[in-house]
Design a protein around this nucleic acid. Sequence first.
DNA 1: TCAAAAGTGTTCACTCTACACCCATGC
DNA 2: GCATGGGTGTAGAGTGAACACTTTTGA
Lengths: 279, 279
Amino acid sequence: MRARSVGGVKTKQRPFYRQADDYDPLMPYDPSAFPPFAVTVDLVVLTVRQHALCALVVRRGEQPHQGRWALPGGFVRGDEDLSAAAARELTEETGLLAHDPTHPAPPNAAHLEQLATYGDPKRDPRMRVVSVAHLALAPDLPAPRAGGDAHSARWAPVESLLKQEDAFGRETGHGEPLAFDHARILADGVERARSKIEYSSLATAFCPREFTVGELRRVYEAVWGVALDPRNFHRKVTGTPGFLVPTGGTTTRQGGRPAQLFRAGGATLLNPPMLRPEV
Amino acid sequence: MRARSVGGVKTKQRPFYRQADDYDPLMPYDPSAFPPFAVTVDLVVLTVRQHALCALVVRRGEQPHQGRWALPGGFVRGDEDLSAAAARELTEETGLLAHDPTHPAPPNAAHLEQLATYGDPKRDPRMRVVSVAHLALAPDLPAPRAGGDAHSARWAPVESLLKQEDAFGRETGHGEPLAFDHARILADGVERARSKIEYSSLATAFCPREFTVGELRRVYEAVWGVALDPRNFHRKVTGTPGFLVPTGGTTTRQGGRPAQLFRAGGATLLNPPMLRPEV
DNA sequence: TCAAAAGTGTTCACTCTACACCCATGC
DNA sequence: GCATGGGTGTAGAGTGAACACTTTTGA
């Protein structure tokens, strides 16, 4: 069902179509059978700051949607895998490294995974763009640094970024809706994060390398927007094999009685899962 | 917040690059900044036949991988959304209609959802192709019909399609590995289906419109590859609100005592979930 | 001494599992 | 009758929610 063999026609070099001109004439195809697309990656980078789930947004410096906030992203290069493009954008925007889960996490590591692909023909008025969105989960960071373009960037609570979709009353100074279909992409990423911390150990990706049970609980509370019982939460996470490994140290940075410090354990799937309270 | 009207300048038609020539000069961009990609959809179409989870594969009629089995798929058209392209391919290959879950299912309906996107620069030797894979779940069908091209198509047990990845001993006559990276895509689709029937009512997508509890149980057993206790299964599915609605009819098509017939209920998320036995 | 956060013990309700048992059909 | 699959009852183990209670620090 792919390219139909109609005999390849090698045309003159055209800078816009390098890859297709590169093809092997022994494997014929008909270039008019597939319209060219631009392929981008967009990033939903989430973190927890001050008890709120926040996303990284950048100010667009050019048309279309100039001046609007948008998700960070960029074009996939001609010889680059999708995951490599997403990792490159992530590092450019945040300085974080994508974390290969088969290796121990480096200090500045973030979780990165593919989210979904958005290809509405009208999503970019310039041309046909297919965007492969990725989801990144990062610990609380210092102020975001600007990317390659001289645009500004900030962490914004997802609640305020998504609120505009339903109500038009601007409650804050940053009440403008996101550019393109980025509100939809952000909503999908947030929903993925909310459901994934339920049955995987990904919530630790929001924590610094060493953290307490209380800090992990505040991550769950911020992402789900609920209050959890500290006593039962403690028993549950410490009783789930492979979730947490004690480092031996303690801290009183949250006040009160000293709390044990933990690192993320090797387990990726939680059994039993953490249960999100009913709504 | 979508396309803004700025008044476009239509240039002369160029068949290889129509979309990009369509762009609006008031929204400047640098075409050399994004290499063109071909975008395809590939389909993982699963069904349950004779107690086995099966996938639809088609014989490739052309290079590369000529003569190998592959997942059905094709190019996304220039003005077509990704989900529309997937639905079109599904209908071409199987005659099934993609099912919009907000409406009651038509007779020949299948579940269709986006799976993941595969964009390794080397995945297609001809050129840079990004494939947006979709997952479809269908009831047991009559023999598959050939698509637009005169290729052959068949249902193959996923176990035999995936076995070649690990062992090279060809156990059956159809032991050749799938074309391109389709074994990987199929494996991802199967894993998605296996985990999704756990917490959603999607298993009913494998059943005909009216079905018995025993037939639904055999779907779970085939997809998970386990045996389930018929008594507890019955209690569980009939006790989950919104999962099944009785039609009032009965059947003895499986032999034994007449069994009640059910239709899929409106619920999409199962609470409590079906629990896959430990491995 | 008091507030604050960490951590433990206990109780009750609910769910899962295993399996004994009964039901309604075709042959 | 008897095999076959459909369906219900029930006891024991395990899990989650709620909350009383103890521990250990800083101010």
